[in-house]
Amino acid sequence: MTELVIPGQAGAPEAESDLMVRAEQVHKSFGSIEVLKGIDLEVRTGQVCCLLGPSGSGKSTFLRCINHLEKINAGRIWVDGELIGYRQRGDKLYEMREKEVAAQRRAIGMVFQRFNLFPHKTALENVTEAPLLVRREKRAEVREQAAPLLGRREKRAEVRERAAALLERVGLGDRLHSYPSQLSGGQQQRVAIARALAMQPKLMLFDEPTSALDPELVGEVLDVMKDLAREGMTMIVVTHEIGFAREVGDSLVFMDGGVVVEQGNPREVIAAPQHERTKAFLAKVL
C-alpha cells in the first residue's frame, strides 16, 4: 500500500538522489564473447570517475552502454535517476522508442578517441548542428499546440552565440570557421568537447580522449577537461593518463576481463594498489 512506483524512477531509491550514474550488474556480450561480466558502479553528481584497465578489459564498451550506444544484455543503468534505454512498469521492461533514446542521449555528452567531428562542417557548425536540430523539433511541437511562433532568426543567432562562446572557452575562439581537416588533433578534440557541451549535458563521457593525439598535444585537451571538472561537471573518463586520474579524479575504477577489479580514491589506489592485477598494470604504465 505504501509503495508508490514512479515511472522511469522505479528501482532508484530516493536516498541516493545525488547519484548521477548507477550501474547494477551490467552484462554485455558480442555473440558468444562476454565483454562485461556484471559491472556495478556509482558516480555522484559533480564527481570525476576514471576508468582504468588494459585494452580489451571492457571499459570502452561499458562507457558506450551508459548512453545506450550498446544495448546491454542484463542489469540496469540509471542516469540521474532515469533508467537508460527502457521503461519499467511493474516487473515488465519496455524498449524505448528511437526518439526517447535520442532524448536521453542529449543529456549525456560523449567524446570519442578518434574525435569523429563532421568533416564537411566547420568547427562552429559542428557545435551548432545538434542544438539547431533539436530547436527545430521543439518548434514543430510548439506549432502543433498552435502557440505563437518563436522568432526564428533570434533563436538561431542565440544558438550560434552560445556555440562561439563554448569554442572560446576551449581556446578556439579564433578557429570558428576552420574545417576539421585544417585543425590539429588537439584542436579537433577540443571542438569535439565543445560540441558535446553544446547540448548542456548533465554527464560527460570521455572514451580515451587523448589516445589518438601526439604527446605534445595531450596537455591542451587535459587542461580543458580539468577546467570542466573544476566547474562541477560529472565525468566518466576512460583513460591511460595516470597523472590526470591522480590529479582530477574523485574515484578510480580498475577493470580487467569484464569485471571491476578494484576501486577507490585514485591517489590511494595508485600509491598502494591492493590487487595483484592492478599492481602489475600500474607497474607497467607508471
Partner: peptide
C-alpha cells in the same frame, strides 16, 4: 564513428542520415 557521434548528440536516424551521412 560519424553515426555514433551523431547518435551520441541525440540525433534521430533520419536526422543523422540527412545531415551527417548523406552529405559525406
Amino acid at each position: 564513428g560519424q553515426t555514433e557521434a551523431a547518435q551520441a548528440l541525440g540525433m534521430s536516424r533520419g536526422q543523422l542520415l540527412r545531415r551527417v551521412v548523406l552529405p559525406q
